[in-house]
Design a protein around this nucleic acid. Structure first.
Lengths: 206, 206, 206, 206
DNA sequence: TATGAATGAGCTTTCATTCAT
DNA sequence: AATGAATGAAAGCTCATTCAT
């Protein structure tokens, strides 16, 4: 066994260092304002070295986006495979976002400010991920409508907007005000508020 | 008769032309990527002239933000003075956003992508406006809680997030997918969906 | 008689207003930093009007230089025609500069900072005036050497430099420190110091 | 052996190349007219590189001024430490200027046209250097007055003006007419003329 | 005469990217 | 792997000058 210093492993590690530094800088300055110099400085390396690991600044940003979407959709795959109820699937989504916010707040910040909104960053690839995520959430809504858990006189797509909107605005405000998530209890309370209001609000009329 | 060509009026008109051109360009490229050249071209003037009407690019962007916030808060003033119920006040907010989206979609787009989210654009002045808007919406929520229209076991601030979040995500998606608002009916349906789910979802338990 | 408002007189007056305003602005910012807008503002007119009276910014500056040199050389003509002694001619030069400094300090300032030194302003025409002035002063020196008033073992040209240098540095310091000339007595004292040191220092050995 | 190509040395060398190129360009066009492009071209590098070594155009100009004043005041320190007579100290000043003119005529040119006169370039720092230089020269004059070498009925400050004025006008004319200093003899002759006329002219009456 | 809107060349500065070492 | 010197395209802003009114 080559040990933890195998060349390939080193490479991955350094790549991760640059990746994290990039997230940190992009979070505070926005993608277009983040300079390679800033990222290199944050990573503690020379700026020339960034180009050994990433083809270009755009490439680095694409890697961040890809990482975000793959991780999110992977969670939805797992959630699907557990073949749980629609309510639990929605709860999984909410908890996933809150967990990532707790562990990698930069990623959520970038998603909120640079990926989910800024249309100037909308590469065709990114838009594709976006649509997939929306349509998978819409599927959960449709499933819930079939099971009479959610009212059917509002389009599944509209319900999707309302649900993700509440979640996003919560995150957005925490992100903009730099609020840390204080422990399990607060996370649970927020998750409950979002889920309860939505499920309650969209419950079919008896 | 002074006619419609009084010099001052001309000046205001040209300023508006540049303002609108700037909105259009900022909408499609984002603020930092919008070049003065683009704006001038969109306005059909030479770029030097932009500086006749606006001190700098930042000044132009500030003017757009100021216009947005003043118009929004003005609507809330009017809504307040009508001394209507909290539900009607929330309906006013929803309809205001949908109306602006119908008439000046660029403004809503910029609000969604550049003002409400991008923290790198957060001037202290802008943050101030933001807080005022949030706190005025929170007041409506508190008022509704007092009147037993909304449940009181969720903080007024959380209710604010959930409400504005749904609205924003609707707009955001329409904005990102360039969906036009097709007439009064669709606008009403969307408004109803947002309001009903929210009011229903946050109604006090009997 | 048309009175003081004859059109031509008006034109001359306005021209003089612009001229003086230009001197004031050029004095404080230097020629290249002086903007037409500044000059127009100082003159209390619109900037477009400057171009009715002067072909261009360079033209305006040339007018100022011409005015300076013509006035100076005119004084030397008068001094020559009085057929006075070389000492008196040198005294005339010193007093002329001090008088102009008292009445039109801007002109002296511009001469010191923009005309006599800055080689980047040296138009061929300006250089011509300069040489004429130098050579006429040199003539006075030569005349004084012939009359055994000044020593002959130092070239007349060198004496010219030393003489004008002392005068210029006096003016330069007053100009840079914005010292006003306080009355006849101070003017006389300065003139005496310059003249005495020079004449004494350059007196032939007995 | 590290050799002459140690990285730090290279850096200093390149910085010096840019510095000299800047002097050359500023000399011929004046500071405000000197473009970064000109300087880069004169230095044989791309203009982007200028910003690698100097923060800005103003920074580059400040470096030139600092170099000038530090070198000049350093000479005066050395001259003081030799504890020589006031006459010799004045001679040191004159020879210093003539030496620099011989070896680095650009520096003298810039001093004459851009530093010593142009009030639009007068940064507070520059003004401070200026005052120090003036007051140290004045000290020499006062010392000479105490020792009965110079007359005391003219203020030491006035004597300073007259002395530096002669020197400056010499240099100024050589500079403006691009006269090269032709060897030791001419330098000595000029120095003698300046010193002799001044010391003679300002000698106390017997 | 008088105004100031309009133009665009020209300049400084930034920064992604390349490449020699 | 790693550095940072070097390049130059690109963008913001200024301001002399023109011209319609």
């Amino acid at each position: 066994m080559a040990g933890s210093n195998a060349p390939n492993e080193n490479k991955k590690e350094k790549e991760a260092v640059i990746f994290d530094a990039a997230c940190k800088v992009i979070r505070s300055k926005g993608f277009h304002q983040a300079r390679i110099t800033d990222i290199a400085q944050a990573a503690g390396i020379s700026y020339g070295l960034v180009y050994h690991y990433f083809r270009s600044k755009a490439d680095l940003f694409e890697a961040i986006q890809r990482e975000w979407w793959q991780s999110l959709l992977n969670m939805m795959d797992v959630s699907d495979r557990k073949s749980i109820s629609p309510e639990e699937k929605l709860a999984d989504v909410v908890h996933y976002f809150l967990d990532v916010y707790e562990n990698r707040p930069d990623m959520v910040h970038i998603f909120i400010t640079e990926i989910s909104r800024a249309s100037s960053n909308l590469t065709p690839e990114n838009l594709e991920w976006f649509k997939i995520f929306m349509s998978r959430t819409e599927n959960i809504m449709a499933e819930a409508q079939s099971g009479r858990i959610l009212r059917s006189d509002i389009r599944a797509r509209y319900l999707t907007y309302i649900f993700l909107g509440g979640l996003e605005t919560f995150l957005s405000t925490m992100v903009l005000e730099n609020q840390p998530l204080k422990g399990r209890t607060q996370k649970q309370r927020i998750a409950d508020a979002i889920l309860e209001v939505f499920l309650n609000g969209a419950r079919p009329k008896p």
